[in-house]
Amino acid sequence: MIPLSWYLIVAALLFVIGFYGALSRRNAIAILMSIELMLNAVNINFLAFWRYLTPEDMAGQVFAIIAITVAAAEAAVGLALVIAIYRSRDTVSVDEVDLLKG
């Protein structure tokens, strides 16, 4: 059987890639995708821990399902905000969204 740590390392790598993307991308949609990547890393963690530690208690699975649902709701609101920005400024680059500063 594959040891638990392998899953955790994959999840950690995925999370770091997502985090890097979220910080370095300039396109709002790409940032949104990077955030999804981070959330999926978390889901791998939940499921791996659940399977290896407490397969009789469903908490980890439930948490993963809830995280997926919340991510969908979040993406809906996020895309709506991106569309609102695109309509008012014709861009989705976060560099050009810079009215507020100081």
Binding site: F15, A28, V42, N45, F49, F63, L81, L100
Partner: peptide, 25 residues
């Protein structure tokens, strides 16, 4: 304001969720 709040917020909450997964583990 909406988009900035959203981008910061969802990155922060993803990081928090990762912490929760470790704590759960």
């Amino acid at each position: 304001a909406g988009i900035k709040y959203f981008l910061y917020g969802s990155i922060a909450s993803a990081v928090m969720l990762y912490g929760m997964s470790l704590l759960y583990g």
